[in-house]
Design a protein around this nucleic acid. Structure first.
Lengths: 200, 200
DNA sequence: GTCTATAGGTTGATAGAC
DNA sequence: GTCTATCAACCTATAGAC
């Protein structure tokens, strides 16, 4: 059996994908032309159409590439025995994904057809925030059973608060251009730990 | 003194703005052409350029129009004596804005230049989530002083949780196409009330 | 202020050689 | 698989009449 599955990397294809994402983030999807992508990737326009058929095909490939990072959202390893440290690790995994994943999700909204393609992909793979929420929720349920966090709250809600925080933290600077009003991550987690601590 | 300030409404201008927002939300900004806007508004393309100079000018006008709804985020009236009811009212004001405001903020990301225009507008008017957070935070601080909510938490954090929830609730269906994982608003507020209740 | 007609520029996509 | 050259379509913007 060969070591690499599928096409042998001649470089061109990957360079195109990378260049596309770069242009997407810098110029915005409305300014993304196959011409500029070709220049940045160091290939001709013809190559782009050879590999991806058409512009939507190129974008679809880039989108699915970035969005596949969402599969990691369920299975973040438990980092330590400390709750806060573990929750922080979960949050970091989500934040890492959102940094580039959000750009793609937002870009897709610029075109109704791309919107549909992305949604189909997400739904088809069952990708979405609920995966992160479920993963953290499972961990928190264990902690609750162990009596480490208060018992009068649905762990899913706590989990949702953590995911929402990560989402807000990632999305706000992108959409509003500033981070005003968002508490530091430390302040957030400190408050959260206080809120979910067992009540006497 | 005349009753109406500024230009007498001949209708055309407003129709164009409305049609533009409609096309923006339906087709996406990348598919928004002056041609289709003109058709929908029932005017000629020439009229669009007469009123808004160029395409970016048209979009800028639409953006600022929608984003100005953000000024209401600070001053939501206190609805009742009940905390939960009042917080729900705050949340509703934010949700109402986000429903259309988010579409505009997201659309602007499709073009680096528009991105800049919008950010300048937001920063220049000090618009952003922090306004909602500050408004609710002020109310919560009063409640805390009155002993109705626990005293060991910064009210700003609670306020941030509420705004984040509203944001997640509005953004997720737009970006992911589904609402999976988001708890119902009632469940969220019920949990929140439990979390912020005074501890013995 | 609004229209019609059209110019001018850009862009996605194809054809065919290598 | 990659390139060059080119086309056809589309869209923004302008000019000038009403």
């Amino acid at each position: 059996m060969k070591k690499t599955r599928g096409r042998p990397p001649s470089g061109g294809r990957e360079e195109i994908l990378k260049a596309t994402l770069d242009v997407l983030r810098e110029r915005g999807i409305a300014r993304l032309t196959t011409r500029e992508v070709a220049e940045r990737a160091g290939v001709s326009e013809g190559s782009i159409f050879y590999h991806f058929v058409d512009r939507p095909g190129l974008l679809k490939a880039v989108f699915e590439n970035s969005l596949d990072g969402m599969k990691n959202l369920t299975s973040a390893a438990y980092a330590s025995n400390d709750i806060r440290t573990t929750l922080n690790t979960f949050a970091k995994v989500i934040a890492d994904f959102l940094d580039s994943g959000l750009d793609v999700l937002i870009a897709a909204q610029a075109d109704a057809e791309l919107r549909g393609v992305v949604v189909d992909f997400l739904v088809g793979n069952d990708y979405g925030p609920h995966r992160g929420i479920a993963g953290i929720g499972h961990y928190l349920a264990e902690q609750q059973a162990a009596g480490v966090i208060r018992s009068d709250i649905d762990p899913k809600i706590i989990s949702y608060l953590i995911v929402s925080d990560a989402f807000q933290r990632a999305a706000q600077p992108k959409l509003f251009g500033q981070r005003k009003g968002v508490p530091g991550q430390d302040a957030f987690f400190t408050a959260l730990m206080t809120l979910i601590a067992p009540v006497d």
